[in-house]
Design a protein around this nucleic acid. Structure first.
Length: 502
DNA sequence: ATACATACC
DNA sequence: TACTGGTATGTAT
């Protein structure tokens, strides 16, 4: 093993293929040189080692299971036939992927950037690059300083999310006219169910997609690529086929679908990343979706049921891709920051406090509270540690979150850190508005007492509005006209702030 | 419930 | 000099 695979160094170009000014080996060499000797490089080496061990363990498992293979093969055949019989071809999905989105928005403002290598991001990380930069091997998720080694003339533009949001909103508006329930994964990608639209319009999917892309272009001055298929997953894979500024229509025909997937590398499947792709290749020589089918028995024998079912269904083009379902509620909220290495607990606490404040602000905006507080620590060597506590009652203020987070930190303080994060999960919306009046009437409760006048307040302990009204009156006795805070919790928080840490 | 790993943009 | 941040989910314990 000569060095870390550049796929693990942020250099991989699984993105759309343009002719490259430099060939792949040359690019890989430059990335290697730029990374060698860094802590990050060492970390990736350890990571690759771990993956190699995992593959070795699976290889042993494979030899041990070889006697049961033929029986398992019968079952696999049955499983595949059964799955095939349930294929759904009736709905039509369209996946939209904006071309080099952030970079394209920047080009709108500064057209001269269209013809020079340019990327959006910072010295430590790039979000995207334009197509000129890609010919140098400069891609998203690559550190800016490495990108400069590949392309010394690269122009790096700091991101302007406000502009991207505005551009994204224009695009979404167009998309919603094709599917009002359109779900967008991010600013630059969206999945539409266009079955109803097609039924109404009597135009072909090709025509509708051309028209849609034309409308997106006119509304935003941005180009996009589109894929159409009978599942969201297929539509998404298809959107990559004729990128940029192109489209691909996959007919709802099982034979055409399988023929299309045959050539697709497994890495194209949403949910298969570089680790899974490497394990599949090293263990079973699986590279394409067709390989998944031909190795289906081993996949079922060696991987978990969830994992193998996902892989096989995906390879058949029947995967229920992410976003297929609900689109549901948020499950957690978190904040994390990377910084120059720190060693002292007190410095860590200062950062942690800021993170908690930020998290509390974000929580307040959507009125969430949560029962599980977690912290995430990344050492200077890039090892990640997480620690969590689950509480009796949901919390939402920075003081409460910090109280638990800092306990977790001091109990587990690593020698050094390059990143800290706080997360709140087990979320509930903390407003008492879902309680009906009956709850208040029947529950025997203790009256809360006022921290100012120390008298008991004639209100339920959850009734922060009335409690705050009372406290406000005590705090400002000369005024009868107490302006009602829209966010009652704030008043109480402000009152107790003095006793909080820092 | 907790820790860790993988994935996506 | 320098390798993100936010969210979800799968796996193992």
């Amino acid at each position: 093993m000569s060095g870390v695979n550049t796929t693990f160094l942020g250099g991989h170009a699984t993105k759309s293929g343009l002719p490259e000014a430099r060939d792949r080996t040359q690019i890989d060499k430059i990335i290697q040189e730029a990374s060698k000797g860094s802590k990050f490089y060492a970390f990736q080496q350890r990571r690759e080692q771990r993956i190699a061990e995992k593959v070795a363990a699976l290889q042993i498992k494979k030899t041990q299971l070889s006697t049961g293979y033929s029986k398992a093969e019968q079952e696999t055949r049955k499983w595949l036939a059964d799955a095939e019989s349930r294929r759904i071809l009736e709905r039509t999905y369209l996946h939209i992927d904006m071309d080099a989105f952030f970079a394209a928005v920047e080009v709108l403002r500064r057209p001269e950037l269209a013809t020079v290598p340019m990327a959006v991001g910072g010295e430590s990380m790039l979000s995207t690059s334009n197509y000129v930069a890609r010919t140098f091997g400069v891609v998203a998720a690559m550190p800016g300083y490495i990108a400069r080694k590949l392309c010394p003339h690269l122009i790096i533009i700091p991101p302007d999310y406000t502009a991207y949001r505005a551009a994204g909103a224009k695009v979404h508006e167009v998309l919603r006219s094709y599917d009002p329930n359109m779900s967008s994964f991010s600013l630059d990608e969206a999945s539409l169910d266009i079955t109803d639209y097609l039924a109404r319009s009597s135009a072909t999917p090709e025509e509708v997609t051309e028209e849609l892309r034309g409308r997106v272009l006119r509304a935003s001055n941005l180009t996009c690529s589109a894929g159409v298929g009978c599942s969201r997953q297929l539509a998404k894979i298809g959107s990559n086929v004729n990128k940029p500024n192109g489209q691909f229509i996959l007919p709802p025909d099982p034979e055409k679908i399988l023929e299309f997937l045959k050539k697709q590398p497994v890495k194209r499947i949403n949910g298969i990343g570089k680790v899974t792709a490497k394990i599949l290749e090293d263990l079973l020589k699986v590279v394409t979706c067709a390989d998944i089918i031909s190795q289906a028995t081993w996949i079922r024998l060696l991987f978990s049921e969830i994992q193998s079912e996902f892989l096989l269904l995906s390879a058949l083009g029947m995967g229920s891709a992410f976003g297929d379902g609900d689109g549901s509620e948020r499950k957690s909220m978190s904040v994390e920051r990377t910084f120059k290495k720190i060693d002292a607990l007190s410095d860590m606490q200062v950062v942690l406090k800021k993170l908690c404040k930020r998290l509390a602000e974000d929580l307040l905006e959507e009125e969430w509270a949560g029962k599980t507080v977690s912290i995430k620590m990344k050492t200077a060597a890039f090892d990640t540690l997480t620690r969590a506590v689950t509480l009796e009652n949901p919390v939402s203020t920075d003081e409460e979150i910090y109280k638990h987070a800092s306990k977790l930190l001091s109990k587990n303080k690593p020698p050094d850190l390059r990143l800290l994060g706080v997360r709140l999960s087990g979320l509930t919306t903390d407003a008492p508005r879902y309680r009906c009046l009956d709850d208040f009437a029947h529950e025997p409760v203790e009256r809360p007492s006022c921290p100012v006048c120390t008298q008991s307040i004639d209100a339920h302990p959850d009734d922060t509005l009335r409690i705050n009204e009372h406290i406000d009156k005590c705090l400002v006795p000369q005024s009868n006209l107490v302006p009602q805070s829209k966010k009652p919790r704030r008043t109480l928080d402000a009152f107790f702030n003095k006793s909080g840490p820092l």
